[in-house]
Amino acid sequence: MVVTTKAIVLSAIKYAEADLIVSCYTEGYGLKSYLLRGVLKSKKGALKTSYFQPLTQLEIVAVHKDKGTLERIKEAKIAQPYRSLHTHVVKSAIVLFLSEMLKNAIQEEEANPPLFHYLAQSFYWLDNHEQVANFHLLFLLKLSAYLGCYPDASNIDAPYFNLSEGNFQETDSGLYCEKGPAVAVFKGLFGIDFDSLPQIKLTKSERKHTLNLLLVYYQLHLQGYKKPRSLLVLNQLFN
């Protein structure tokens, strides 16, 4: 079946001499993997290697056999050109980190248009703003809503956050209860949008510990989650 859909590139891995295996989150068909034969050697083909950088937004024409095997992309074009996402040092580190997070976190193979639109709009915002050091924190919190594990904030004034239960509590009730500066920062992310991020001033330590809290939360609530290898690069950059 030949389909046309928007797609966001999550990863591209070299295969054999000149091929790429590309993982995309598509608007119409959810998570899909494609084998691009000869793309690394072809200079005049319809598919350009530069199209398959992490988080690139494409419109593709693809052949889907839906048999659990790698699919094929016939045509691709940039759907949302980026100005700075792959050239700005901080943004490119965030891109690598988030693309790996998404590759680990998104498992569904059905279409989820609200999730796709959230991703597309979030990356557009990241591309067009300069104060982005805390972007990944708010992005991950908001992403959890689309993954079905958004924390319960009904008791947000309580001092403890139970990562296992996903709620705020008055007392320490177990191994995964946290309190302190990271939880205070975490609370400040609820109920805001990306345009409010420049108002959040964090130290490097606060940012690192809040991110670690979010990553433990993902580990507890998402089956098969793996800590991103790019986390080390992100932490080194912000340190």
Rank of each mutant, 00 (worst) to 15 (best):
V3P: 00
V9A: 12
V9F: 02
L10I: 04
K14S: 11
E17W: 00
A18V: 06
V22R: 01
V22I: 08
S23P: 01
C24H: 08
E27I: 04
E27G: 03
Y29V: 03
G30D: 12
S33P: 01
Y34P: 06
L35N: 06
R37I: 09
G38D: 12
L40T: 07
K41Y: 04
K44C: 02
L47M: 06
K48I: 08
Y51G: 08
P54F: 03
L55M: 11
L55P: 00
L55G: 04
Q57N: 10
L58R: 12
E59N: 13
A62G: 05
K67P: 00
T69E: 14
E71G: 05
I73Q: 05
I78P: 08
A79V: 03
P81N: 12
R83E: 07
S84G: 06
L85H: 07
H86S: 09
T87Q: 13
V89E: 14
K91E: 02
S92W: 04
A93N: 13
V95G: 02
S99D: 06
L102D: 10
K103H: 09
N104D: 07
A105N: 08
Q107T: 09
A111I: 11
L115M: 13
Y118S: 06
Y118N: 06
A120P: 02
Q121M: 06
F123C: 04
W125N: 05
L126T: 08
L126Y: 03
V132I: 15
N134Y: 00
L137Y: 02
L138S: 06
L140V: 06
L141W: 03
S144W: 05
A145D: 09
L147W: 03
C149V: 15
C149R: 13
Y150W: 05
A153G: 02
A153K: 09
N155Y: 02
A158K: 15
F161W: 07
F161N: 13
L163N: 08
L163G: 11
N167D: 10
F168N: 09
E170D: 11
E170G: 01
T171N: 14
K179A: 15
K179S: 15
P181M: 08
P181A: 10
A182K: 12
V185R: 01
F186I: 10
K187I: 07
F190E: 15
G191E: 11
D195T: 07
L197Y: 00
Q199N: 13
Q199R: 15
S205A: 12
R207P: 01
R207V: 06
R207G: 02
K208G: 00
T210K: 02
L211A: 06
N212R: 08
N212E: 13
L214T: 03
H221Q: 12
G224N: 07
Y225Q: 07
Y225K: 09
P228G: 08
L231A: 03
L234P: 00
N239G: 13
N239T: 15
